[in-house]
Design a binder for these strands. Structure first.
Lengths: 208, 208
DNA sequence: ATACTCTTGTGAATTCTTTCACATATTTTA
DNA sequence: TAAAATATGTGAAAGAATTCACAAGAGTAT
């Protein structure tokens, strides 16, 4: 199968959200045109995106809402659950532990790590905080598939290297710093500063 | 000037961060090659991106770190300050108020709005929380240029409509929902669910 | 049954983005 | 001061992503 572009995946996420809403409203069928309109895409775009994965529609009618939703869920891997570890229980870290969307998407936080002796050994929303020193061993033992980095930027690369060393190939990063990972590791960074810079550019360049 | 792509702006953000680091390390000059390597881009990409805005380098030598950094700051509008209002002081909202990067990028939170009577009239990190009922009027009075939406998804579209009605043309959204804005309004959404779905897709489709 | 309407699925065309490749400018070396 | 080395800036080429446009399937009405 031809490699699927990041933008296609992003759009699938958006379609998925729209379909969730439609399902709640008991809509059973939707055309590419309507699906497009609610997200400011073109109908052709919607059809092309879906066509990479199969043909889910009925000509003359459209797509069955609930089936298409399930199909996208399966494409995005939302039907499975993943073992996740969180490194760093500061502001961001603890916010994440209570973020419900995480669970809902099948990301199960199995382990939490920190280097602060006052936190280690204590419970954090039902999960024991472990010493980051044991990171490598514990990641392997617990078959962790994804790690969330929520440590200060200065520490981030060090943690990433260890995590990669332990064989984890998927990382979600909240530190605002350029992290280096090998070719075969998927790293996504939630980079607020970058979002802000997009907005700042838009503000600075908007037509009056 | 030809329209600049989103990806170019994203990369400028990354160059900017690299240049900040280089400046701290007292590096005075950098080539497109080195700038590319530290971000996994190609040298040509770097040069092309910069060339949209002018020619800042010296042939045979490279780019002057501090000048280029300042130039990018000015392109991204980071030299100015912007009047920002925050709507919704829940978990996300209050985290944002204390987020230092905001200030550093020149986003000054002038007003905070909520609909919770227990919060209205009280101070939140030095800023008075106003009733969201007065949104329209107060946005105009305070010349607010950007609004941050940190309300529950169910309320988000309603708030957006009001904000747009008050003439604000730049919105940063934290609600996980598809918001509709007119053509001339810039809306960026920080959508954690979408990030997660990218990772989930990567996990589900990674080669074993 | 037949005609008509609707909407998908998909090659082809178009548009947008990235990379190549080289003329040109500047610094360094000798 | 001349030759060598280096690195920019940019048209042109290549590659990706998006949109077009239409054949073909499916439902609906008569």
């Amino acid at each position: 199968m031809r490699r699927i572009s990041e933008s296609t995946i992003s759009r699938l996420s958006l379609y998925y959200r729209t379909l969730e809403t439609l399902q709640r409203e008991n809509v059973t069928t939707i055309s590419s045109g309507e699906l497009a309109r609610s997200n400011k895409f073109t109908p052709a775009q919607v059809r092309k995106d879906l066509s990479f994965f199969g043909s889910f529609g009925t000509r003359g009618l459209g797509y069955p809402v609930s089936e298409l939703k399930d199909k996208i869920a399966s494409i995005l891997g939302l039907c499975k659950t993943w073992n996740v570890a969180l490194v760093g229980v500061g502001n961001v870290g603890s916010a994440l532990v209570s973020y419900k969307e995480f669970q809902r998407q099948g990301f199960i936080i199995k382990k939490i790590f920190d280097n602060d002796l006052r936190k280690i050994g204590k419970n954090h929303k039902g999960i024991l905080v472990s010493d980051v020193k044991n990171l490598n061993m514990e990641l392997k033992e617990n078959k962790i598939e994804m790690v969330i980095i929520a440590v200060p930027s200065s520490e981030a690369q060090k943690v990433v290297d260890e995590v990669v060393g332990a064989g984890v190939r998927t990382i979600l990063n909240f530190a605002t710093t350029n992290l280096k990972v090998p070719e075969n590791v998927v790293l996504r960074s939630v980079n607020m500063a970058m979002e802000l810079e997009h907005l700042s550019y838009a503000l600075a360049n908007q037509k009056r």
